[in-house]
């Protein structure tokens, strides 16, 4: 599945730069030491003046939940319908979620609770995008 290309903006630039280096980083509040994703201009938990940083995480997680997309609004993905769309919880902080198409997992046969690890796949304009694959026993 080829996803739309990504044009990093000022807020998301560190996330996408790290992805191009095959590293997964998540925004972290220095003041309250709490990860947040998606990123924001301010910490969602403490005051707006809190310092934010980007923190590299392990790239390991668990499949929390999933649905099967049969009617996708994104044109580039429509030829791949139906497809899995899962939510991953990070091992570093299960409160942090990331999306995944779970490449290699048959449609609607998603092993909820299975361990996964991050991989990086090129999007339509070459920007690498975090994806997740099931870790075989």
């Amino acid at each position: 599945m080829t996803k739309q290309g990504v044009e990093p903006d000022s807020l998301s630039q560190p996330f996408w730069d790290a992805a191009n280096e095959k590293r997964l980083v998540i925004q972290n509040c220095v003041d309250c030491d709490r990860l947040q994703h998606p990123p924001s201009d301010s910490c969602r938990d403490c005051d707006e003046g809190a310092e934010l940083e980007w923190k590299q995480v392990s790239g390991r997680g668990t499949i929390y939940n999933y649905g099967v997309v049969h009617d996708c609004p994104v044109r580039l993905l429509q030829e791949d319908q139906p497809f899995n769309l899962a939510v991953i919880m990070l091992d570093d902080d299960p409160g942090i979620q990331m999306y995944s198409h779970l490449p290699g997992v048959p449609v609607d046969e998603v092993p909820v609770g299975a361990a996964v690890e991050v991989i990086f796949e090129p999007s339509a304009n070459g920007q690498l995008v975090p994806e997740w694959r099931v870790i075989e026993d």
């Binding site: 996803k3 998301s12 996330f15 997309v69 994104v74």
Partner: peptide
Amino acid sequence: NAIPGTPAITQLWGGP
């Protein structure tokens, strides 16, 4: 064919 980086973090996967 491409979208800005911040919305991409939530929208790239195509959930309706």
